[in-house]
Design a protein around this nucleic acid. Sequence first.
DNA 1: AATGAATGAGGGTTCATTCAT
DNA 2: CATGAATGAACCCTCATTCAT
Lengths: 208, 208, 208, 208
Amino acid sequence: MAIPREEKFQRILDAAIEAFAEVGYYQCQVSKIARLAGVADGTIYLYFKNKEDILVRLFQERMGDFIHDIRTQLKDCRSTQERLKAIIKTHFSYMEKNRSLAIVTQLELRQSDIKIRMAIGGPLKEYFKLIEEVIAEGIELGEVVPMDVRIARQLVFGSLDEATTDWIMARTQRTLLSEVDQMLFLFAGALRLQSKASGGENTPDDAS
Amino acid sequence: MAIPREEKFQRILDAAIEAFAEVGYYQCQVSKIARLAGVADGTIYLYFKNKEDILVRLFQERMGDFIHDIRTQLKDCRSTQERLKAIIKTHFSYMEKNRSLAIVTQLELRQSDIKIRMAIGGPLKEYFKLIEEVIAEGIELGEVVPMDVRIARQLVFGSLDEATTDWIMARTQRTLLSEVDQMLFLFAGALRLQSKASGGENTPDDAS
Amino acid sequence: MAIPREEKFQRILDAAIEAFAEVGYYQCQVSKIARLAGVADGTIYLYFKNKEDILVRLFQERMGDFIHDIRTQLKDCRSTQERLKAIIKTHFSYMEKNRSLAIVTQLELRQSDIKIRMAIGGPLKEYFKLIEEVIAEGIELGEVVPMDVRIARQLVFGSLDEATTDWIMARTQRTLLSEVDQMLFLFAGALRLQSKASGGENTPDDAS
Amino acid sequence: MAIPREEKFQRILDAAIEAFAEVGYYQCQVSKIARLAGVADGTIYLYFKNKEDILVRLFQERMGDFIHDIRTQLKDCRSTQERLKAIIKTHFSYMEKNRSLAIVTQLELRQSDIKIRMAIGGPLKEYFKLIEEVIAEGIELGEVVPMDVRIARQLVFGSLDEATTDWIMARTQRTLLSEVDQMLFLFAGALRLQSKASGGENTPDDAS
DNA sequence: AATGAATGAGGGTTCATTCAT
DNA sequence: CATGAATGAACCCTCATTCAT
């Protein structure tokens, strides 16, 4: 019985993630992806237009999942604090579960190559919009002090992103998830978060 | 009169920054750098061991300047708030004055290529240390709530870095420097900054 | 029907022999070999590690054949005189049949490049050993006056080699094989060869 | 006081011999010769037309000396045996005294590069002619059995040449000169040398 | 005459992509 | 669909030669 088309497509994507994570997009040879995927070099081109297409589809597929995950988590949240925590937790747990993908994200997200950025830009902007919506909603609800949502989003995303990069570079056993509460504490302070329920001050220890 | 050796070295570095910024390190041809620098291809190799050496020396030279600039600015600061503001201002103004270098930084800083990271890592770690020192000193002075300085540094650096990336990507006329006060306001909140002098609450508008 | 892998390997080797013979190893471009072999430049590298590997394998393959040929001829010889004649004949006829290879041999055999000499040295030493064995056996059999076999080998190999070089340089129609008997006459004299059967004196004309 | 022009010319030639001997003509960089000669790269071109010219002039100068040396030695010889011995001794002692030049000779003498061969060919042919003259004279004098002088010369030169190559490759302390008598013994046998004075048989031990 | 920084053509090698099987 | 041998354009780097000083 032949492997279904979809499965082989995913196998190649997974192989590409591993390969890109290890040596970066430009340094990675198509034949390496083929080897990791257990297919012939030529087979790659039955599923992808060219090397760049692999990277593009990779982001579309996997970032799409990620955004979808977060949106799902956000549905059950009742306050900005809960929503921020959901974002941090999902971001960190996703990166932790997909370390190689995380590496590729941190790496290639920055590519200045126009064509590549265009392709990656979509899902990322979607994520930015999501974060900004949460902040804007917080302001509307009076839970967040009025401020420039773009700059606030830069702080939120930049911090999560940098924490992830740090974690990748460190190569230690330290988990990202262990930092959720501390990151939330910082965000809460930055946004002057007022929990409607408690109204109390946030401290590093009661942030959960 | 011949161009002094040092000047030609700098000319090549500047050309490399432009070239790397435009297409990225791996996509950039040595001949492109030579053309931009107004020298022959072979001349490059009188000043640099190889292509990689250009990137490495570039970071060593220019990041060194950057760190030195910040340290100089910090000397005149009398509070953590002033120190944070100095970091933000210097970071933003340096990136704004060296847009191409900023692009290269955002781009290649993430490279997973071991050799490249080793070379870049030094100056960057120096910067991280500097930020962490400011935060730690703030805690000692009682101006910052006790917290994990590493995570706080991730927030500070990550936010500055993301703001810079955003600015690069936007390609608008908007200046980075116009965001200094708003970024400082966010940092002040995240760190629960207590200005010894006023002791009052920080607001988006009085952050200057 | 595709050309078998082995055949293409040999086609490239043959092309390399022609190319090296014409301009020498260092002056020869890989693309020239490719053109002569009727393959693309890159194809060379599917069969050989690099340019040097072509030269090395060339000697291993073809010198191996040569040594094997001589050993085969020696089996049917019943006297030192016959053995010497077999060596001269096989040496000359092989070089004559493989003029280009002969040129490469005369040329690159002398290379001082360590790596190349290491590769070529093997088969050549094998040939030296073979000649010395024949002389040593002749001494044991009482057919050759006791002497330093190394120096005698230098005379035998040196003379054959020089005759070959002469023939290559001359570019005339004169054949090498026509000199077999005269060369044998000289060797016989140098070694004071005693033909057990006749015991008579050798002359230039009865050397056959 | 400036170094006289002629001396600097010789310094460069000597440096070239060392350099060519070490890595071969094509592998040798002009800058290496300049360094060894203690002059600037550009200075080379004040004395030589180009790199090839260095090699050509080198052979013309030094081989000329060599031939001249041998001709001088031959003047005092009274028999073919003495003349052969003079050739062997002078050849070996010259190579031993000029090991690097010997290496270059063994190496580049074989170059098939037309232009180079043309230049080197002259002095070498002169040497061949000299050897052939000695043999022809020996035949005329009745000291050498009538034979093809070209082939006899191939044996003489080939043996000397191979002995030299062997010595170069061996890199041992063994001297070439220690082999003079044994080589003469072999030549005497090959040529059926009849010493008019003694008329006796030559043996390995009385060859002096 | 001497220098040595600068030049730029040239070549070995890689690797994304194709296509005959 | 799948293969993987073959392709050949592209690129980093070397080094013989030049020339302004």
